[in-house]
Computed example of a mutant assay.
Amino acid sequence: MEEPTRRIRAAHSDSTITVYQAYSREIGLPAARDGRFPAAWKRDRMTWIKPSFLWMMYRCGWGAKEGQETVLAVEISREGFDWALRNACLSSYAHGLHPDRATWQRQLKRAPARVQWDPERDLRLQPMPYRSLQLGLSGEAARRYADEWTISIRDVTPLAHEIHALVGSGDLDSAARLLPQERPYPVEDEVLAPLHG
Score class of each variant (00 low, 15 high):
Phe81Cys: 09
Asp82Glu: 14
Asp82Met: 14
Trp83Gln: 12
Ala84Val: 00
Leu85Met: 10
Arg86Trp: 08
Arg86Phe: 05
Asn87Asp: 15
Ala88Leu: 04
Ala88Glu: 07
Leu90Lys: 10
Ser91Lys: 12
Ser91Phe: 09
Ser92Ile: 10
Ser92Val: 13
Tyr93His: 13
Tyr93Lys: 10
Tyr93Arg: 06
Tyr93Pro: 09
Tyr93Ile: 03
Ala94Trp: 07
His95Ala: 08
His95Phe: 11
His95Asp: 07
His95Glu: 13
Gly96Tyr: 05
Gly96Ala: 03
Leu97Lys: 15
Leu97Gln: 15
Leu97Ala: 15
His98Gln: 08
His98Cys: 01
Asp100Ile: 13
Asp100Phe: 13
Asp100Cys: 11
Arg101Tyr: 07
Arg101Phe: 11
Ala102Gln: 10
Gln105Asn: 09
Gln105Thr: 08
Gln105Leu: 05
Gln105Gly: 05
Arg106Pro: 07
Gln107Phe: 12
Gln107Ile: 09
Gln107Asn: 13
Leu108Val: 03
Arg110Thr: 12
Arg110His: 12
Ala111Asp: 04
Ala111Ser: 07
Ala111Tyr: 06
Ala111Pro: 06
Ala111Ile: 01
Pro112Lys: 13
Ala113Leu: 07
Ala113Cys: 14
Ala113Thr: 11
Val115Glu: 01
Val115Trp: 02
Val115Pro: 04
Gln116Asn: 10
Gln116Leu: 06
Trp117Lys: 13
Trp117Arg: 14
Asp118Glu: 11
Pro119His: 12
Pro119Asn: 13
Glu120Arg: 14
Arg121Ser: 05
Asp122Asn: 11
Asp122Thr: 01
Asp122Ile: 00
Leu123His: 03
Leu123Phe: 03
Arg124Tyr: 02
Arg124Thr: 02
Arg124Pro: 05
Leu125Gly: 00
Gln126Thr: 01
Gln126Gly: 04
Met128Ala: 02
Pro129Gly: 11
Pro129Gln: 13
Arg131Met: 07
Arg131Ile: 07
Gln134Thr: 02
Gln134Leu: 11
Gln134Lys: 12
Leu135Tyr: 06
Leu135Pro: 05
Gly136Glu: 05
Gly136Thr: 01
Gly136Arg: 00
Gly136His: 05
Ser138Phe: 01
Ser138Val: 01
Ser138Asn: 09
Gly139Val: 01
Gly139Asn: 03
